[in-house]
Nucleic acid binder design. Sequence first.
DNA 1: GTTCTATCTGAACATCTGTTCAGATATTGT
DNA 2: ACAATATCTGAACAGATGTTCAGATAGAAC
Lengths: 198, 198
Amino acid sequence: MARTQGSHSDITGPRIRKAALALFARHGYAAVSMRQIAAEVGVQAGALYNYTPDKQSLLYRLMSDHMQDLLTAYDALDPAGDAIEALRRFVGFHIRFHLQRPDEVFIAYMELRNLTPENFAEIEALRRSYEDSLETILQDGQRVGQFDIADTKIATLAVIAMLNGVMTWYRAGGRLSLDEVERIYWDMVRRSVSARGE
Amino acid sequence: MARTQGSHSDITGPRIRKAALALFARHGYAAVSMRQIAAEVGVQAGALYNYTPDKQSLLYRLMSDHMQDLLTAYDALDPAGDAIEALRRFVGFHIRFHLQRPDEVFIAYMELRNLTPENFAEIEALRRSYEDSLETILQDGQRVGQFDIADTKIATLAVIAMLNGVMTWYRAGGRLSLDEVERIYWDMVRRSVSARGE
DNA sequence: GTTCTATCTGAACATCTGTTCAGATATTGT
DNA sequence: ACAATATCTGAACAGATGTTCAGATAGAAC
């Protein structure tokens, strides 16, 4: 046998990335073999190398695509009037965007150490860019007195860590709706950085 | 050659666990081989099996010991007067305990999926027990009106997620002292759950 | 000093790893 | 109908994997 019926790169390519995404998320990059990915797609391991130069690039591609999507989606948000409104939108966006992509989020966080130094630096720069968006909001609110924050850098990381926590327990169809989750988190975030009276 | 000079299980056993801890934390459980661990200790791979029935048990032992230490240390804290004081002590304890054991913390969080289902259940129960300590504090404060919390379960997870964030960036000798870090986080945690006026 | 036991070596095992590539077949373009 | 190209197979590669075990030596007990 050789080329199979119906084979096409526009179909196989995405299927490979989808299979790799699911397997990396569940078992971890190092624990997943190229043969497992190929089996999930219904193809031999050698065929994967028509779509990626190596296993490492497959991981990098998944993480890079995810971060690009994140930044693009965030940039597409309507501009907010003031810092409090901007923070509220950030919280809602972050929660909803990430809950829609649990596998991507998990990989982007857990597999950083399996990137080569060059790939790591690129992904890290994208993440930093996203974090800077939040820090800018906090700085703006701090400047005009809407927020009362001891250290905006730490507050940025603390808020993101807090929001990321939702990924570890939220399941669609559970006790709380997405709206309720967003409201509860927004309430806690707002109070953790707000000046009295705001 | 066979038994080597100075060999003793009281020495080799801890050294194996220490080496495994460092390697698992840096490269991940799946990416570390028994031969790498053995090389770090200065021994052949076969010798490891005098100290662990298999690789999986080595991981489980590290995580179990860590969680036991955590619960023991927390239980040894002086009892607090009221809920706010208890929360303040929890924040300080959590930050300081975890910052002293970065490798253990990293493994306990990242390698859960590499545990067998039975081992996972045991570790998860220990973690749940620790989280319950915090939720009890939040519930107590909520009951007497010191806290204003929409959902104590979510608040518990949100606070722990927020505090865990400190592990990703804090480095001893950096811009902020441990006392400053503790004060900043305590300030944010307190405000995120406190009723007005408290 | 002799026996007993704890500790480690070194080799072996079956299997899995990422990756390469010649050759075969399906699809596309003419 | 034919030629060109895209896609996949199947085998092969060198090396790594977790684990076992007979045999050898060091330390402990008497």
